[in-house]
């Protein structure tokens, strides 16, 4: 952890959560605009809808049911945004991240997995059957998509020969990994939607179970849980840039701006896909993860390993 090349940008500890929050708000506003346009409502008003909804949640009185496990519920809800911000600490903007750990990719994945514990305990602690069903749904989804997700991350690390996110971005000066390993990139995007329970993978918060893991949390708790989910999607979209899209490299503009533009583009793609793709039942999604995505990404990892051994990368 204290390699010579490891460092911490202390000011980044302030800036990174704010940038991530801006990206997360853009995701919320974008999905609100898409929903408004689909229903024929004025799209401009939808831009501020998430802010109004957040303000409303802050003013709402918290509500709990008897027998709720307050400690676990609070911890679970708080874990969701905290894990997202911690994951974002290793994501570089241009060439600079808050800290470029020697095992940054593993760190990022560990923080994503903390989300499972957070959503499950939030669902369990609320002492509501809907919350618990939502928590269990997220576990199944996480288990089914974690392995494809992990192998997509591993494939990018394999191509660069390093688990350090900065070195992975630097290894793509010639050719972006999205072109070298398109299957891994596609699997990363799909599994990212699943890992941050974003539509069409939002069955853990499904309307058929009255909101699932978010059924019971009200007021500030609900705001923290839902904001955390947006933060996680934003962090994962930003992570796609150093892993597959060449980091901050690009003509004319400075590196940090390229990073931001690419992250916003990936996020827009994810939000748009989420609003366009139909929700499919959990059991179908789970099988797609195991039977389709996992073999595909393993073959991609094999191909990249051959490239590396043959010296083509």
């Amino acid at each position: 952890m204290t390699d010579s090349a490891d460092y911490v940008h202390w000011w980044g500890l302030l800036a990174a959560p704010m940038l991530l929050a801006a990206l997360a708000y853009a995701a919320a506003a974008g999905s609100a605009v898409l929903a408004a346009r689909a229903s024929g409502a004025p799209a401009a008003a939808a831009l501020t809808a998430p802010a109004r909804e957040a303000a409303g949640l802050l003013l709402r009185r918290p509500r709990t049911v008897p027998g709720a496990d307050t400690l676990l519920r609070r911890l679970g809800v708080a874990t969701v945004p905290v894990a997202a911000v911690m994951a974002a600490l290793v994501v570089p903007l241009g060439g600079r991240s808050v800290t470029d750990l020697s095992i940054g990719v593993v760190w990022f994945n560990a923080m994503e997995v903390l989300l499972w514990a957070g959503v499950w305990t939030a669902g369990w602690g609320a002492n509501s059957v809907w919350g618990l069903v939502g928590g269990y749904r997220f576990l199944i989804q996480g288990l089914s998509y974690e392995l494809p997700h992990m192998f997509a991350l591993t494939t990018a690390a394999l191509g660069a020969g390093s688990l350090r996110v900065g070195e992975i971005a630097a290894a793509q000066q010639g050719l972006w990994f999205a072109l070298v390993m398109p299957v891994a990139f596609a699997v990363y995007l799909v599994s990212t939607l699943a890992m941050s329970f974003w539509p069409p993978f939002d069955q853990p918060l499904g309307a058929d179970i009255a909101g699932g893991a978010a059924a019971e949390p009200t007021g500030a708790d609900r705001l923290v849980l839902l904001a955390g989910r947006h933060l996680m999607l934003a962090a994962a979209a930003a992570m796609a840039v150093p892993l597959f899209l060449g980091g901050g490299s690009g003509p004319l503009l400075p590196g940090w701006l390229w990073s931001a533009v690419k992250a916003a583009a990936v996020l827009a793609l994810l939000v748009w896909a989420g609003s366009r793709l139909p929700a499919v039942r959990m059991d179908r999604f789970a099988e797609v993860g195991w039977v389709v995505l996992l073999p595909l990404v393993l073959l991609q990892a094999l191909a990249v390993s051959v490239f590396v051994v043959a010296g083509w990368m």
Partner: peptide, 17 residues
């Protein structure tokens, strides 16, 4: 570093399951 973060990753998965 690798083992430490891996403990967090694997143990979170294991305990949740």
């Amino acid at each position: 570093a690798y083992l430490g973060v891996l403990i967090v990753l694997m143990m979170t998965m294991e305990m949740v399951v």
